[in-house]
Design a protein around this nucleic acid. Structure first.
Lengths: 183, 183
DNA sequence: GCCGTTAGGCTAACATTGTTAGCCGTACCG
DNA sequence: CGGTACGGCTAACAATGTTAGCCTAACGGC
């Protein structure tokens, strides 16, 4: 076992993310990360500035992961299909990683990552010939509805899990219809 | 200064809620509540079982507050107007108390409170002649979209605040149209 | 290949918070 | 008037975040 653990910021953030997946947002603690890294707690300060900084970075990573998934999902499709793919991928991400829901609403410098996601949404909406402010409104509608559903599902906010696929399908239909009508 | 502070569970929860409003969810700490109550920290254990319990109760109160607002908003209106009023009240609540957004997704025994909210939504949907599973799907669509928008707005998740009213108006239109078409 | 510098680990120490245990007086009830 | 129980308190402890300062392995320049 090397005297130097060879830790980097990226490894610390990755460990943090997996801890969030296992134990929820409240489980993300410097002590747990240090333990997972095989290192004493204060050593982490050589890589991150503290717990708030780590939280921010983990949130950024979570948003980036979502962004990647969504971007992959819309490759080669357009129009209604792209919207369905985008919403499906968004939901699937939070089904797979429910504990990351809380990461997706962080206001701070994670903003840069959010831009990526917005870019994908806007690209998809280009198929509807929406431009400028119109596209912004449409993007917000799209994101709001899928985010709301996914977050509530991830948190167990719906009474019973039955028919969730059906509910989601209908939500997607409503959004697609809205976009087509030039919402 | 009375030897007995005359504290009750309700007062503790109320103090907790106002602390959440002032300092966010992370600011809700037994120490802060005790200070606000003019009492030593361990004394709180005579009223709540600990921090998790307090969190649950505060969340319940937050959901109850939303429920009340929404219920008030739909009194005397029906159909499309009721849906608009419901969504408007939901959003307005989180605009007024942005820090309560995180309270609305708690899975645990706050479930009872959520039932109330669901009941209001279902009552509103009765105007669309939706029944049984149909009504459940519609309720989820309604709740998902308004929740998503309100949460993202509360967290500053939208880049700029401009035209948010316009965006929200369009979201409401899309949902109303979807419900009318029997989504 | 030596040597200085630095990066990346460590221990020690401390503040804050949550939590438990146990004490003690006040308020109320018979 | 006396007893009980409720609602406060202090003391003590564990866990976490954070700072300070040390020490050494790794690496680069001469």
């Amino acid at each position: 076992m090397p005297r130097r653990a060879g830790l980097t910021v990226d490894k610390v953030v990755e460990l943090g993310l997996s801890i969030v997946d296992q134990s929820g947002l409240d489980g993300l603690t410097l002590a747990r990360v240090a333990e997972a890294a095989g290192v004493a707690t204060p050593s982490l300060y050589k890589h991150v500035a503290g717990l708030p900084d780590l939280r921010e970075r983990v949130a950024g990573e979570g948003i980036a992961g979502l962004s990647d998934r969504v971007r992959q999902a819309v490759i080669g499709v357009s129009g209604d299909e792209a919207v369905r793919a985008l919403m499906g991928a968004y939901r699937a991400y939070l089904v797979e990683f429910p504990n990351r829901a809380g990461l997706l609403v962080a206001p701070p410098p994670a903003a840069g990552r959010r831009e990526d996601l917005l870019a994908v949404v806007l690209a998809v909406l280009r198929g509807y010939r929406l431009e400028g402010a119109e596209a912004i409104h449409a993007a917000r509608i799209l994101r709001s509805s899928v985010h709301g559903f996914a977050v509530l599902e991830a948190a167990g906010g719906f009474g019973y899990r039955e028919d969730l696929d059906e509910s989601f399908g209908r939500l997607v239909d409503v959004v697609v219809a809205g976009l087509r009508s030039g919402a």
